[in-house]
Simulated assay, not measured.
Amino acid sequence: MKVKDLAVLVVLGAVALFGYDKYKSYAADEVQSQAVQASRPVRPASPPVEDRSWIKSDAAPAAPGSASAGAFKCDGRTHCSQMTSCAEATYFLRHCPGTQMDGNNDGEPCERQWCN
């Protein structure tokens, strides 16, 4: 065995020993850290709140004329052809701006389609 080869082996052995020593100290610190955390009461993390307002409801639509006023909301519809009942048209006329469902301004919407 040459001196050069022996020197390389000594250097590699020293590097391996140094790395192993660092690994042992890291592993010991990790075990100690886990022991400290185990002694503390762990508070469960609250689950993140997810915005699901964009998902359509699976509920079946109500039969025409049977829904209460609480079931309707202003969503941009303005014409009788977009309504499904007289009650819905009446709600939209009374509560939503810009509706075009009462041609003669008598307060009764969609007289030819729904409210006749």
Rank of each mutant, 00 (worst) to 15 (best):
K22F: 09
S33K: 15
P44M: 12
G19K: 10
Q34E: 12
H79M: 13
Y91H: 06
V36N: 10
C74H: 04
A27V: 11
R112H: 10
S68F: 06
K2T: 15
S57Y: 01
C86K: 01
V3W: 15
T90S: 09
R40Q: 13
R52Y: 08
S66Y: 06
L9Q: 13
A16N: 03
F18M: 10
V8N: 09
A62H: 07
C96L: 04
H79C: 08
D51Q: 00
D21C: 08
R52E: 12
R43I: 15
P44N: 13
A16S: 08
A28I: 05
P64R: 04
S39K: 13
A27S: 06
D5H: 09
A28V: 06
A59E: 13
Q100R: 11
D5N: 09
K24P: 00
A71N: 03
F18R: 10
R94H: 11
C96Y: 01
E88C: 00
E108M: 14
G76H: 04
A14E: 02
L17K: 08
S81H: 07
M1K: 14
Q32I: 12
R43F: 14
E108S: 13
A59I: 10
D58N: 12
C115I: 04
P41T: 09
Q37E: 12
Q100G: 04
P64H: 04
S46E: 13
W114N: 00
P64S: 04
A67L: 05
C96R: 01
M101L: 01
R94V: 05
L12G: 11
N104S: 02
S57Q: 01
D21T: 13
V36S: 12
G19F: 07
E30S: 11
